[in-house]
């Protein structure tokens, strides 16, 4: 049941427990309980909203930064990752395979704000060897959802 609940919530965290229980064919209390358990175990880490900020008046820039670092004996990449993810400007940090070590996603109001963060905070960190900053120009699809398309049902309304 857990995986099914998660698969549904991942696509629609707004769904209420009654509907979720109906979709699973399980009692409401059992589903509510399972969700509570998963929140406690931090399997469910939060409920977010997918927003197309481009359609608002809010100024917002997102940057993807490729970071090369020196891993530390005993801690590997975890200690340096922690020093980076604790900054509130940092939205996501992933350890990567391949040509660099960490992907750091940063949200800021202006290009300058993000660039200064990289120059003043990220790049000077002792273990950081190099950074390469890429700004996001347009988000087409995020979290499996195409952002700028309204889905219309073009089927004929009644068919055999």
């Amino acid at each position: 049941m857990r995986e099914t609940i998660l698969a549904i919530l991942e696509k629609n965290s707004k769904i209420n427990v009654a509907d979720l229980a109906a979709m699973l064919g399980e009692p409401e209390a059992a589903v509510a309980n399972e969700i509570a358990e998963m929140e406690k175990e931090h399997i469910i880490c939060g409920y977010h909203t997918l927003i197309n900020w481009d359609k608002t008046s809010e100024e917002k820039v997102t940057a993807l930064i490729e970071v090369k670092v020196t891993p530390q004996r005993g801690n590997g990449f975890d200690a340096i990752a922690e020093r980076i993810y604790n900054y509130s400007e940092v939205n996501a940090v992933y350890l990567m395979s391949g040509g660099f070590d960490l992907t750091v996603m940063i949200d800021g109001k202006t290009l300058k704000e993000v660039a200064l963060f990289v120059a003043n905070k990220l790049a000077p960190l002792e273990s950081v060897l190099s950074t390469s900053t890429h700004f996001v120009l347009k988000k087409y699809k995020d979290h499996g959802t195409i952002l700028d398309v309204l889905q219309n049902d073009e089927r004929m309304s009644v068919t055999p």
């Binding site: 109906a22 699973l24 064919g25």
Partner: peptide, 12 residues
């Protein structure tokens, strides 16, 4: 999932 949803609602 929708099938179960409908069944639960209709019987409900």
């Amino acid at each position: 999932r929708r099938r179960k949803f409908m069944l639960t609602k209709l019987r409900g």
